[in-house]
């Protein structure tokens, strides 16, 4: 089966007086429907790798194929379109909602931009918000929601276009344990029912271990080790 994500010798060096290498040659494949966790100490390159995979940044070297597309060949506009239709992204910080939009509007904005019918995207956005436990907060603005609630809205927003790959940068970092468990179960459900490919960053590999297929340890911009579910069981 064709991998959903293929990374080959991916390098990223941040320019400056002293160039800083953040990724020093990552190669990996993620299969369709696989749930992968990236973990490692701070500065290991987890977020940098996720930014490259999520097309939020461009690597210095190496190749990246997402769903069979060589994304390096895409123009800026095509990358944006690709992000909109194929990728969902949940940021580490919960303050990544559009402050002038309600929870419902924040969630349906990407669906609207993708050309969804008005009634359809409102219904789907409301359903997703109910799924993340915010059915009663549809018309609340971000400043009327707690950090955890905002993060759940961001997750719903990332899912609204039914992305082929969902990237999540420590999505449970700002959530209480109950909410965090709900989110991870939601991810697992998406994976099992819809075949969603999920790549998630976590500082708590133990918490996500029951849900993920593989946990990839990064260290100093390189893959240190990979733990698979089969190896665990």
């Amino acid at each position: 089966m064709q991998p959903m994500i293929t990374v080959s010798n991916l390098k990223k060096t941040y320019p400056g007086k002293v160039p800083t290498p953040a990724l020093r040659g990552i190669s990996l494949e993620v299969a369709k429907g696989e749930f992968v966790a990236l973990t490692g100490r701070s500065g290991a390159g987890k977020s940098t790798l996720l930014h490259q995979l999520g097309l939020l940044d461009t690597p210095t070297e190496g190749t990246l194929h997402l769903n069979g597309t060589d994304v390096e060949t895409l123009s800026d506009a095509e990358r944006t379109e690709f992000r909109l239709k194929n990728l969902g992204y949940v940021f580490q910080e919960y303050t990544t909602l559009i402050i002038e939009l309600t929870a419902l509007e924040n969630v349906y904005l990407p669906h609207m931009a993708a050309g969804g019918a008005t009634r359809h995207y409102r219904e789907e956005a409301a359903e997703l918000l109910r799924l993340v436990g915010l059915g009663g907060r549809l018309d609340h603005y971000p400043n009327e929601l707690s950090g955890g609630e905002q993060q759940r809205v961001a997750i719903a927003r990332a899912l609204v276009n039914n992305p082929k790959i969902l990237f999540a940068d420590e999505p449970t970092a700002n959530l209480d344990s109950v909410s965090a468990k709900t989110v991870l179960e939601l991810f697992a459900k998406l994976r099992s029912e819809m075949g969603q490919t999920i790549v998630l960053i976590t500082h708590e590999p133990e918490d996500v271990r029951p849900y993920v297929d593989r946990t990839i340890w990064l260290s100093d911009g390189l893959i240190e080790k990979i733990e698979t579910r089969n190896a665990r069981s």
Partner: peptide, 15 residues
Amino acid sequence: RQIGIMKAIGIKQRI
């Protein structure tokens, strides 16, 4: 920051 977020979630620069 919000413009960056909008671009990140796939909203076109033109929009």
